[in-house]
Amino acid sequence: MPIDKNQVKKVAKLSRISLDDSKLESLSKDLVSILNFVEELNKLDTNEIKPLTSVIDKSLDTRDDTVSDGQIKDQILKNSPEKNEDFFIVPKVVD
């Protein structure tokens, strides 16, 4: 059993997805079978292998330090669910 219901709850919390009990039940079952499926990799000894960082053979491209973007407040805020001219608005953050 690679993952139990409590762990699924914890992962759901980390993922910010609320799960009711019936969802938790069925999802846990699926996650167990997926994790069992990927267990296959443990048959392989990879101690000497360096992890892949990119499939393409090039270094990171860079750009010049010039200002050519921004000043599009209307576009930025246009799709926000709670309309406001200047800000994104979210329910109160409790610290």
Binding site: S15, I17, I34
Partner: peptide, 25 residues
């Protein structure tokens, strides 16, 4: 009632099951 709950409900209602499975994995 607060930001965290808003996230959790938004993503629970907004994503379908397969997306949830993969996000959780």
């Amino acid at each position: 009632n607060n930001l965290i709950e808003m996230y959790e409900h938004t993503r629970a209602e907004g994503f379908g099951d397969e997306v949830k499975r993969r996000v959780l994995i």
